[in-house]
Simulated assay, not measured.
Amino acid sequence: MKKIAMGLLIIIFLGAFMVGCVEKEDIKETTKIKAAEEKDKNQVSEKVFDEFTKVLETKNALQTKEFILDNIQDVTEEIADKMVLEYELLLDSNFKDLMKKYNSDTYFNAVNETMDKEHNLYLEKIKDENIKEEVMNTLASGYTFEMLEGSYYLTIDYAMINDTFSKYLSENLKPYYELRKKDFEEPTFVEEYVSIDFEEIKNRVVTLEKVIRDNKELANRADIKDFMKWHIQALLAVDYFNNFVDYETGEVREIVKSTYEELKASDLKIAKYAAEEMDKLLSEFQYVLKQDDEEAYKKVNSLKFKIADEVSKKIEEYYSVK
């Protein structure tokens, strides 16, 4: 019986040993396959990006968008990021001339004459066939119309960019286009007034600074600097017009004070600096800004615009590619 038991143990041991060897070989083979696939994808990505740069040189946003749609699933996240960022820059570059055209009486009237009583556009009803075709191509390229003060104006369609390309982008870049979409659908400012709550302002500031920190190529862009400046200005808009100060008592809202404390403890250099400076000033007034205290509001507004104007240099100092 002992010999039989010993034999069984040897058989079990040898079996386990053989299984282990097979598993190790399988792992090695899987690793080789993955490495080959990654190598292939990198090679494909290089070829795709070379072709992409040629398409980009045409400055045709519609062709550029269609090329990305045809190829983005075959490239690495790094190349996907680069293509979408370049496409966005092209939309922005072309927008300057398009804005002049669509703000001219001919195009402005052609678009806005299709608006119904509920302020919905029916662009298929544009009377001039040539203008209608041009408008449809413009929308297909990556633009849309947004309402401002009762009329529609051309703008970049950030909701489309996010919804179309986000799933292919890196985790570092995805939040940028999510934020762009959010700001497009629910603007931080309406005219000169903050239109979102303070918690949302903080969330957008934090998201944006992290995106700039984690994507150095963004830090050199003028539009990103303006975008960050705009949000820092909202973060520092401490007054009763924006409901961040109690209208009756003049007391600064608790959400403002707690948010500044949170940002002061963060590692986000620009948001931290802005919160520290404004909190220091507010503490001098014991966090009370009464309506008739013109001197206090003058100092608060002066500091707000000073810090906002420093944002561009701060981004260059902390995050730009040297």
Rank of each mutant, 00 (worst) to 15 (best):
K2G: 12
A5W: 05
I11S: 09
E29H: 10
E29L: 03
T30P: 00
K32P: 02
K34D: 13
K39M: 03
N42Q: 08
E51T: 14
T53K: 14
V55W: 10
V55L: 06
V55A: 07
V75Q: 12
M83Y: 11
V84Y: 06
L90A: 06
S93C: 08
M99I: 14
F108K: 02
T114Q: 05
H119E: 09
H119Q: 04
H119N: 05
E124F: 13
E129H: 11
M136K: 08
T138G: 05
G142R: 08
M147P: 01
M147L: 03
L148E: 09
Y152F: 15
Y153W: 08
L154G: 04
T155C: 13
N162M: 13
N162D: 09
Y168I: 05
L169S: 02
L173K: 08
L179V: 07
D183P: 00
V211S: 03
F227Y: 15
L236I: 04
A237P: 00
D239H: 10
D239P: 01
N243K: 15
V252W: 07
I255C: 07
E261N: 14
E262D: 15
A265Y: 05
A271R: 05
A271I: 03
K272D: 08
A274P: 11
L281C: 09
S283M: 14
K299W: 04
N301P: 01
A308I: 04
E317V: 03
